[in-house]
Design a protein around this nucleic acid. Sequence first.
DNA 1: GTCTATACTTGGATAGAC
DNA 2: GTCTATCCAAGTATAGAC
Lengths: 211, 211
Amino acid sequence: MVRTGSARRPAERSADTRRALVAAACDVLRTEGFAGATARAIAGRAECNQGLVFYHFGSVMNLLLAALDEVSARRRDRYEAALESVETTSELVALAIQVFSEDLDSGDAAVLVEMIAGAASTPGLGAAVKERIAPWNDFAVAALESVLGRSPILQVVDSAEVAHAVVALYLGLELLSHLDGDRAPAMALFSQARRLAPIVELLGGQLKEER
Amino acid sequence: MVRTGSARRPAERSADTRRALVAAACDVLRTEGFAGATARAIAGRAECNQGLVFYHFGSVMNLLLAALDEVSARRRDRYEAALESVETTSELVALAIQVFSEDLDSGDAAVLVEMIAGAASTPGLGAAVKERIAPWNDFAVAALESVLGRSPILQVVDSAEVAHAVVALYLGLELLSHLDGDRAPAMALFSQARRLAPIVELLGGQLKEER
DNA sequence: GTCTATACTTGGATAGAC
DNA sequence: GTCTATCCAAGTATAGAC
């Protein structure tokens, strides 16, 4: 018989606590920002003792990086799965909008932004965050190239640079939505993008007949 | 005879100190981020006593807001002056690139980003920052409308939404450049935009002959 | 107006009991 | 593994001397 709930085997309890702390770290980063992400605030949110932050992660910074890892891994999986089903520019735009919306709602984008903006305050944190951002950029490049692969549009724009712009736009929209406490402007932009996608498709010579 | 340097009339010394603290606050926000912008760090950078932060501004947060005011006012003046001489889309893009580059180099963009990202950690700060962002958005809208005024392009995109996207892109590019310690990707994007501007001009029916 | 000194608070981190 | 208690450093803010 396997017991459930809070009374489990030690190894499981430990894993539960780690998970709770990581989840709480994401939560606090989202709601209180990097400057508010203290050991006590996070442990309080996880409803566990403050000392456990240091027992499990050694330092607050390591816990925050673990939170960033968690978010990065979760999103990469989501992105890659979604990308499989995309072939046209319109579909890519729809996917991007879907994924952006999810990240704004879940707070994953906020975690990313707070860690990037907070990186300035701790030596070495910048490099660690940078490593964890790379997959997001790589995904954007891959997504663009999988769709624009043989399109003449690549003769006029560079996919790596467009990907960089898309990531920047993503981060900036999160900053503004979070400040406003209002996702409406981002959503309005998305619906414009949705309407414009077929036009880009046309310009790129990606009419359905040509595939 | 007017004395210069550090020995001046009391009122001038006071103003000098305030200016030094505001400048130091910008500097620290840029290099240490919001979380590193403490009274001691700022006073140290200004080479004055820590207690003067509270004498002149009452609290660290007020000083940071004064720094944001300073940056906002300075940039608004710069933008408005530059906007006067702009008529075509190509000119607008060139202006935007010029202004973006200046803000990345001077660190004004970093001040803005750090204050927005840091706003989450202090109740009430979000609203204060939001007020100070409004002019930036207003400028972007005015710039777009002054150029696209009678262009048919406004029948397919909304200038307020495009302006929002431009501001978001601006903030996102700052986040990424700052993390990378490298403005090259942003600059590469700018040069792409410069090449693409004439195409947009063409699509928008803004050929020189038509003016 | 500025400086020194200091009260008070919060946060990172560790030791030791359970 | 978790909790209590505690140390120490850093931060905000104020009082009082100059």
